[in-house]
Each structure stands twice: as structure tokens, then as C-alpha cells.
Deep mutational scan, measured.
Amino acid sequence: MATGGRRGAAAAPLLVAVAALLLGAAGHLYPGEVCPGMDIRNNLTRLHELENCSVIEGHLQILLMFKTRPEDFRDLSFPKLIMITDYLLLFRVYGLESLKDLFPNLTVIRGSRLFFNYALVIFEMVHLKELGLYNLMNITRGSVRIEKNNELCYLATIDWSRILDSVEDNYIVLNKDDNEECGDICPGTAKGKTNCPATVINGQFVERCWTHSHCQKVCPTICKSHGCTAEGLCCHSECLGNCSQPDDPTKCVACRNFYLDGRCVETCPPPYYHFQDWRCVNFSFCQDLHHKCKNSRRQGCHQYVIHNNKCIPECPSGYTMNSSNLLCTPCLGPCPKVCHLLEGEKTIDSVTSAQELRGCTVINGSLIINIRGGNNLAAELEANLGLIEEISGYLKIRRSYALVSLSFFRKLRLIRGETLEIGNYSFYALDNQNLRQLWDWSKHNLTITQGKLFFHYNPKLCLSEIHKMEEVSGTKGRQERNDIALKTNGDQASCENELLKFSYIRTSFDKI
């Protein structure tokens, strides 16, 4: 039985969820670079991206490699990797027998973001014989899940209580170790020597080791999670996991709180800001991140802002960003909400898709409305799209047979046209069989910064309504002859009103 693990408890099935942008060198404390989270699957090609990484700022997932063999891993080693800020997950990587050479110096898994409450997941690794993470000293947050690894031993010899604050939620089941077939031998045991430290858990006094050649490092209890030197002297209180010299914040392997210019500090002093819960960055760093993602459509890219001495992905609820200094300031009234469309555009074809934009005031991208039916549609669209004030790209209304009016965009005031449909149009209306009105132009103002209007096959939309939009939106004169079809717009509506004058002759039985 794995020490510190839980057996036999019912657990939810383990679901495996399925960018080499360097964020800056980590400095003297770390020998390499800070790398983003990685999802490495199918083959070993991307694994080489770990070569210079000291910190993975995010998670590391290595999974679904069915053609790899043990010899493929023999020359692979990433000794610079010290810390993973989120979680480490391995799933069905064939041929991998140990992690001792792959990650010989991995010391800390912070667990800032977890995989279903777990910071370390080893699942269905069919050839893994031992973990071998002999320098792993601290899992700051989260638990361990090690399950269905039929060859995995050296679990009962690990004292997880020396690595985690609590072992109650560890789930370590259905491994070879369960069948008591392992016969784990710690260093020196074969020669009758006791080389590794022994600890007591559940009444068992057991030597602690990761492999037959690597003991588990056990520091004096007084050192807590700070770690200790090879001689057993406690590291500085700002260290986490390990250090090369005692009581020196510049000799830590990793930091308990924050890293700044080669030393570990309790908090980031001005003019620095907390970033990702582990390091200090200056304003320029946060500003660069903001600008890199301002026009990016890459998933996970955030326009970072500053709030409460932190550089964070977005302002919290009730705050909006001051564009001059990136500071989050309290909103006066309802907060603006910028919604970034991942692929640059979004099609609204149902109430469900409209709900995804609920509360958005600025759309960074283009909207395509293609709704053919739905219950209580006008009210639903207004509830979900009615706060949109600005669209950076274009607005396209296409084959939306259920629409009679666009009044559900009740606050839309600006279409920038930074991206144009077919390279020309910022407003595009095609084949809307029941569209009769755009907006009530006596109450609604709309500016279209650039781009043209396109109207074709809107049989109940009168040309007068379209011409009014040209005047109000500032697009009059931009359109070419064929942009607004004269014969297919309003051709099934009563669009022309003329005053009919009647004269009559009164007659009676005795007068003409």
C-alpha cells in the first residue's frame, strides 16, 4: 500500500482533458527560462521544448504516446526543470519506465491550478516501474492521483506527508504495488545497510526511497516546507523545498512566496507586481503582455491589467481597466465587458449561442446573426445582446428569417469595421425574408467608422429604411451602385405612401 494514499474509496472516473512563447529569463536562482504550460502528445517531438525550461508557468501534460519505446527515452533528460506552477499529468506514455532521468531536479509542483483537485496525476502508464522524482520536495496545493499503472512499484516507500501538507485526498490505487509483488529495495538494503531515512506512518517504520538508488530526502521537522541542505541544516524561511546553503534567500532552489532578481522575498516591493503567484514583474512586463494579447485571437491570451499590486489576466467583477495605466478602477454604474472572439468572429444561430455573449459591452471581433427560429426570440436576444455598444469588426445579418427588427441591439452605437466582410463591408444584410426595420432612427444613433453597407434580398425592408441608415451611420456616399439592390429590397412591402385627393359631386333626387 502506498504510504499516505487512500484505498478502496469510491472515486469519480478520471477524465483526461485534452506555445513556446518565453516569458522571460528567471535569473540567477533558476538555471534556465520560464516556459508556458505545455500539452505534449502523440510523439516526442515537442518534448524537446523543455530543454531550457527551469519553470513551467502553467501545467505540463505528457500523454497518448503509443509508439514510443524505452530506448526512445534513454537520452532524454531535462535537468534544468525545477518547478511547475500548476500540475504534472502523465497518461498512456508507452515505453517510459521512470522519471528519474527525465526530470531529475523537479523540486516543486505548486498546484496553482489543479487537474480535478490533483497536482500530480500518473494514470495508465503501462510501462512505468517507478516514479523516480527523487528531488520532489513540495506539492504546495492539491493532491496526488496514481492509478492503474500495472508495473509501478516504489510507492509504499514514499512518505507523501513530507511532500504535501495533507495526504487525506491522495488516491493511489490499482498499481502493481497493490499486489505486494514489488519487493522494493532501498539503497544499501541488499548489503544489509540502512542508507535512507525511515519514518513512521500508520504504525509502520519504513525506509523512504524513490528507487533502488535514490533515497527520499527527509528534512528535520523544524525546517517545515522550506527544505534543508545535504547536511540537514534548514533553508531560509522564504525558500521552498530545498537550498544549497542554509538561511540564505539567494540560495533557495525555489521560493515559498515570490522570486525577485535572484532572491526569494515575502512580497513584491514597489515598483514590482505579483505575477502568477510566484514571481515579481515590473510595469513594462505587464504592459507588454497586455499589448501582445490586445489584437491576438490565441486562446488563453489575456490583456493583463494591474489590481491590488498584482498583474492579473482581467479586472475583477465591479472594476474596469483604465487604459492609460492598466489599473483596475471601480465602475460607475454597470461595468464594461470586452469579449474577445477566439477566431475573430462568432455566429449567433440560437439563443444558446447568444447567451455566451451575455453582459458583453464591447465585441472584439465580428458578429454573424443567422437565426431561423426560436421561442420568445426578441426578448431572449435583447437579454443577451442588448448591452453590446461596440463591435470592432463587422455585423452580418444573414438568412435570419425569424427577425423582424434589429432593435434587440438596443445599445449598439459603434461598428468600427477594423475587419470587413469580403474585404469591403462593415454591415452586411443578406436574404432576411421578414426583416422590416433596422432601428427606430428617431431614437437610435449608430456610427460606422469604416467599410460599406450591403443589402440584398431583404424583400420587406424598404429602401427608405436603408437610406436612413446611410445618413445616420455616416456611410452615405461610400456605397457603390450594386451594394444596395434596388429590386430585391422592399419588393414585397408597401414602401411608397402617396396622399390621394378626392373630389365629389353631391346629387339628390331633384338636383344634379
Rank of each mutant, 00 (worst) to 15 (best):
V218A: 11
I139G: 01
S323E: 13
P220C: 04
C286S: 05
H59S: 09
R41Q: 05
G262R: 04
F116W: 14
T250I: 05
I312P: 07
E314C: 04
C268V: 00
Q299I: 07
N242D: 09
V265W: 09
L76F: 09
H28Q: 09
T189G: 13
H48M: 01
T221A: 11
Y118H: 08
L152W: 01
I82H: 07
I82V: 07
R297C: 13
R263M: 10
R69D: 01
P36Q: 04
H48D: 05
L63N: 01
E49T: 12
L120M: 06
P104M: 01
N149V: 03
N325C: 11
K80W: 09
H274L: 09
P269V: 10
P220N: 09
T250L: 10
C215S: 07
K217N: 15
T199E: 07
N150E: 05
D248R: 03
K80I: 06
Y30I: 01
C223A: 06
P104F: 01
A190M: 05
N282M: 07
N195R: 08
T250K: 11
K129I: 07
T85E: 04
C239V: 01
S161R: 09
V265I: 04
P270Q: 09
K67T: 06
V167A: 10
G183Y: 14
T107S: 12
E238V: 03
A156V: 09
N150F: 04
I222Q: 10
S166I: 12
N195F: 10
A230F: 09
G37N: 13
S237R: 10
D169G: 14
C268T: 00
G333E: 04
I62Q: 00
A156D: 01
F283T: 08
N52T: 14
Q276W: 03
P313R: 05
V173C: 15
V305Q: 05
T320C: 13
R263V: 07
G203L: 08
Q61F: 06
W160H: 01
V218M: 11
N257T: 09
L63Q: 07
N202P: 11
H290M: 12
M38C: 02
L152P: 00
T189M: 07
V200Y: 12
T107W: 06
V305C: 07
V305P: 04
C239L: 00
G37D: 13
A198T: 11
R141Y: 06
W160V: 02
K191D: 02
R69T: 05
H59F: 02
F275G: 01
K100Y: 07
K224I: 06
L136K: 00
V265Y: 02
E71Q: 06
S161A: 14
L60Y: 00
H127L: 02
Q303S: 11
P220S: 04
V218L: 13
V34R: 03
A198G: 08
P197R: 13
Q216I: 03
N149S: 07
C235V: 00
C215N: 14
L96H: 00
C315T: 03
C215D: 13
G132R: 01
P79M: 03
E130I: 08
H48E: 13
T221E: 14
R279Q: 15
Q216R: 04
K310T: 04
T194H: 14
L128Y: 01
L60H: 00
T189S: 11
A198Q: 02
L326Y: 13
P31I: 11
S213A: 04
R46Y: 06
R92E: 00
H127N: 03
N117P: 06
V167D: 03
Q287H: 15
N150R: 14
D101E: 13
R297A: 13
N175H: 15
I185E: 04
A230K: 14
T45L: 13
C196M: 03
L44M: 07
I158A: 10
K100T: 09
D184Y: 09
K224Q: 08
L260I: 13
V206P: 15
P197Q: 14
F285E: 02
V218R: 09
T199D: 13
P269C: 01
P36C: 15
I185T: 12
V108S: 08
R110Q: 12
R263F: 13
C264D: 00
R256N: 11
C268G: 00
C243I: 01
Q299T: 08
N170R: 08
I158Y: 08
S296K: 06
Y171C: 02
S237I: 12
D75S: 10
G241T: 11
C335A: 05
S284I: 02
K193G: 10
E33M: 14
M137A: 07
V144N: 02
R110F: 04
E33I: 06
E168D: 05
G241E: 03
T157P: 07
V281K: 03
K251Y: 13
D184G: 15
